[in-house]
């Protein structure tokens, strides 16, 4: 009978599942989130309880036996929140422990390719977000930016703003997931955010929004208007929180 593993959705949970697959000498067909599993008489479901110790051993083993780059690859894949990510990561790591540090050069292999394709998508969205995040200055000198990225990348973009806006207090709020990166001028954390009160904007906020909107209009060359190109570079799903697109 085929075995399906399920885990709680945490990164540690995923790594624990991979640990168990090895030490129980089972070959799970799939590794899924609890809620993605559908009951099926012909499958044996094994739920894996997250164990930080076991997760850490897998983590260290990837670092020493495969490479830092593949560790990054699977973490990024994890952030994609795609349904089959657990299975893909499992297959990829199995190959990794066989080949070792050169796994990522093996570009003709499907198990590697699928991970690389996801990694590329996440990298793209992360880079795009570095540009498209728009902070609003609130009362009390807090810079607040709402976002709704496709993937769970708020933790990937935060360090960039720690370097850049190190003297400010800021919040990058993933509205869709209800989480955010919060920075207080010294350190940042990811936490749940539940906005109840209306935001109160700083005094000069609307002046600068207006200036930016007008700048945005003025900089386009009328003889070259090209909405298709604009949308290709900046997909419309990101427009909702862009100051210049909501003037």
């Amino acid at each position: 009978m085929k075995i399906y593993y399920t885990y709680d959705g945490s990164f540690d949970g995923l790594l624990t599942a991979i640990y168990e697959a090895y030490y129980r000498r089972e070959k799970p067909e799939k590794i899924l989130l609890e809620e993605d599993y559908q009951e099926n008489l012909f499958l044996k479901r094994v739920h894996i309880h997250t164990d930080r110790e076991k997760a850490k051993r897998v983590y260290d083993s990837i670092k020493s036996k495969i490479s830092n780059e593949s560790l990054k690859n699977i973490f990024y894949t994890y952030l994609s929140e795609l349904e089959d990510l657990g299975t893909w990561v499992y297959q990829y790591l199995k190959l990794g422990w066989k080949i070792g540090k050169h796994i990522d050069l093996n570009l003709a292999d499907d198990r590697v390719l699928v991970i690389h394709k996801i990694r590329l998508k996440i990298d793209r969205e992360k880079h795009l977000m570095l540009g498209l995040i728009r902070f609003r200055r609130l009362q009390g000198n807090i810079y607040y930016a709402p976002i709704e990225p496709k993937f769970n990348i708020v933790g990937l973009v935060a360090p960039h703003f720690v370097d850049r806006l190190g003297e400010e207090n800021w919040v990058i709020h993933d509205v869709k997931r209800g989480i955010g990166a919060v920075y207080n001028g010294e350190e940042w954390i990811i936490r749940d955010i539940d906005l109840e009160a209306e935001l109160e904007y700083g005094n000069d906020e609307f002046i600068y929004q207006k200036l930016w909107q007008e700048y945005f209009k003025s900089i386009a060359i009328k003889n070259r208007i090209n909405p298709k190109l604009q949308k290709r570079n900046m997909p419309m799903r990101y427009w909702r929180y862009l100051v210049e697109k909501n003037g």
Binding site: H127, L130, G131, L132, H160, D163, R164, L165, G166, E167, F216, K217, I219, A220, I221, K222, R224, I225, N226, P227, K228, L229, Q230, R232, N233, M234, L242, E244
Partner: peptide, 26 residues
């Protein structure tokens, strides 16, 4: 690099922040 107490740094490959109506990056 950013300096202590300073504002900003630069990103080696550059970052586009928006695309104007002619499709060129800002």
């Amino acid at each position: 690099k950013n300096k202590k107490g300073g504002l900003g740094n630069s990103h080696v490959s550059g970052i586009c922040h928006s695309w104007s109506d002619d499709g060129r990056c800002i």
